[in-house]
């Protein structure tokens, strides 16, 4: 990172701070102000989109820890969202847990289940691990349908309306605030974990597992910790998602979402915490765009083919990023920033 000479750090604490210049603080305040006023002016569909983006950011931060930083590619992430979602549904509707308790517990449940499915990661790597996580998705999907007494099977499960310390969060507007605050907390927690001891051990495993071991990193423990941590985020996101619809259903967590989550990491920039936000927004907006322009294209293309457009548009974006900007939007932004900081040189 380059900075103006006027922003030279005078202490290590200052050097490690996330926000170091007045401009960065200003941008953050403007950004937060923008987000928190969304419910005041946004249309219903935009508010829904913004809420879904918020939930997806929570989930993607988890995948970024697991895949982006620890290098363990997981295609089962939406299954662990499903675990969190069903845990949430069972905790609130059958055990009567309040929202504020049920969400973290749902996260922990997904974390524990994720750790169990992470057990093969010590023995298998790369492609084979990917296949194992694909299997994990379908095993969990099957388990949910199998234990219908608990989960309602294909019919799904209804959730009771939620309150937060007596404040009703049933309305879209209020729920949006809950999601956004959770997304901000998730992002901060992810960043803090990744910039300290545990995060460096994760990257060490990703970049060179042999060297990491020679430097005192216990591979097995840390890989499992990555699965645990990453899937807590997935579980929390799943919990937020089912509460939003007041309904839990396997259809809500399709396998394809795992793939899109990986795509979001690629577009945003693998491993980058801020990149997660860019990637999620970019892919979600593209999907929305495809949905919007799909009907108008129905006259030109076969209506059935027009449906596929919502898959094709973001897919093309992912391919283009892989070819032209493999380090994603976050790296592009860094280059822009370096350019204007050096300007006019």
């Amino acid at each position: 990172m380059r900075h103006f000479s006027s922003s030279f750090a005078h202490s290590y604490g200052q050097d490690m701070a996330l926000l170091r210049t007045r401009t960065q603080w200003l941008l953050l305040v403007v950004f937060l102000a923008f987000i928190f006023t969304v419910p005041r002016w946004a249309s219903n569909s935009f508010l829904t989109l913004a809420t879904v983006i918020g939930i997806t950011i929570v989930s993607a931060q988890g995948l970024n820890i697991l895949t982006g930083n620890c290098g363990l590619v997981s295609m089962g992430h939406s299954a662990f969202m499903m675990v969190g979602g069903y845990a949430m549904a069972i905790l609130t509707s059958q055990l009567g847990l309040p929202f504020v308790l049920a969400v973290p517990v749902a996260g922990l449940v997904a974390g524990v289940v994720g750790t169990i499915f992470g057990l093969p990661s010590l023995r298998i790597k790369g492609f084979y691990l990917i296949m194992a996580t694909v299997a994990a998705y379908f095993i969990i999907h099957w388990l949910v349908l199998q234990f219908r007494q608990l989960t309602g099977g294909t019919e799904g499960m209804a959730l009771p309306p939620a309150d937060l310390f007596g404040w009703s969060i049933r309305s879209r507007e209020n729920y949006f605030y809950v999601v956004i605050v959770t997304a901000i907390i998730a992002t901060l927690v992810a960043k803090n974990i990744l910039r300290t001891r545990i995060g460096r051990a994760f990257v060490a495993i990703r970049d060179n597992d042999l060297a990491a071991e020679a430097m005192g990193v216990n591979l097995f423990r840390y890989k499992l910790q990555a699965f645990f941590l990453g899937n807590i985020f997935a579980g929390v996101a799943g919990a937020l998602s089912v509460q939003y619809y007041a309904f839990a259903n396997v259809e809500q967590f399709p396998f394809f979402d795992s793939v899109w989550l990986l795509g979001m990491l690629i577009v945003g920039g693998m491993g980058s915490v801020s990149g997660v936000i860019y990637g999620v927004i970019a892919i979600k907006l593209l999907q929305q765009l495809a949905v919007k322009i799909g009907p108008s294209l129905a006259e030109i293309v076969n209506p059935q083919a027009a449906v596929g457009l919502s898959l094709i548009l973001p897919s093309i974006a992912i391919i283009l990023f892989l070819i032209f900007a493999p380090r994603g939007i976050s790296h592009l932004w860094e280059r822009v920033r370096n350019y204007y900081q050096l300007w006019p040189y």
Binding site: I198, V203, R206, D207, M215, G216
Partner: peptide, 27 residues
């Protein structure tokens, strides 16, 4: 056998791992 994606500083910081006591919560 360096961690190619990390900075010089973080590569060396990563080796301090064994002496540090941070856990999930404090991190």
């Amino acid at each position: 056998g360096l961690y190619t994606g990390l900075s010089t500083l973080d590569n060396i910081m990563a080796a301090r791992h064994v002496f540090m006591k941070q856990n999930f919560l404090t991190s």
